[in-house]
Structure formats: C-alpha cells, structure tokens
C-alpha cells in the first residue's frame, strides 16, 4: 500500500495559508484554500476532489487546473505529485453539447 491510500496516516490539521484565496480552477472558481480544506475533509484522491469540489469538471474539463490541483493535493498529503493517480479519463474528453453527445450518427450512413 502506498502512502496515498493509507487512510490511517495523520496529515495534521488544516493550517490556513496566505494564498488560500488564490483561484485554481478557473472554470468552477475553486480556490486553493477550498482544495486544501477538502484534503483535510478526507478527499485524498483527485477523483474524490473532483466530485467534492468540481475542480476540473467545468467547461474546460481540467485542461488548465489538473496539474495545479495535483500539486496542491500532493503537498497537503506530503507526497510527490507523481504518486497521485490522475483523475479518471472518460468520454467526452472535450466540452460537447448534450444534444450532440446524444446524437449518435446512423452507423449505416457514414458520418464523413
């Protein structure tokens, strides 16, 4: 078991920082402080953070902030960012309107 999964580990209390109000996720407007607090609320994986705060769940799908969020979570957990499993990759990789997403092309009639 690596240290990220070891939930018995004590990461210490949340200590407010001077740059806690720094915006990290530009789309969903989530701050560094919120992300750090979330780790102390028990969200140790990037997938959990995403679901808890919606970081990387906005229009851009984490294009800009995923690396930044990873760095902040890793620091809070006292591990290297490389040890953190990135959030799940799934369809759709890009913003897409629901009406398009639901509009599967007729497989008999070729799309292009």
């Amino acid at each position: 078991m690596n240290s990220v999964n070891d939930r018995t580990r004590d990461i210490g209390p949340f200590v407010p920082g001077p740059d806690d109000d720094m915006l990290i996720c530009r789309c969903e407007e989530i701050t560094k402080g919120e992300i750090r607090q979330a780790v102390h609320d028990g969200m140790w994986t990037l997938t959990e953070i995403r679901r808890y705060l919606r970081t990387g769940m906005g229009l851009c799908q984490g294009q800009t902030c995923s690396k930044l969020v990873k760095g902040i979570v890793a620091r809070e957990l006292g591990v290297s960012p490389a040890e953190l499993e990135p959030a799940t990759s799934r369809v759709p990789m890009r913003p897409i309107e629901m009406r398009v997403f639901a509009n599967e092309a007729d497989s008999n009639k070729e799309g292009e």
Binding site: V91, I96, R99, N103, E104, A105, G111
Partner: peptide, 11 residues
C-alpha cells in the same frame, strides 16, 4: 475511436 463531427457523434 469516438469522434464529434459537426452535430453528430461518430464511431
């Protein structure tokens, strides 16, 4: 491979 082409999703 799933591709968004215009207003459609094509496999």
């Amino acid at each position: 491979v799933v591709v968004k082409l215009g207003g459609e999703v094509v496999h």
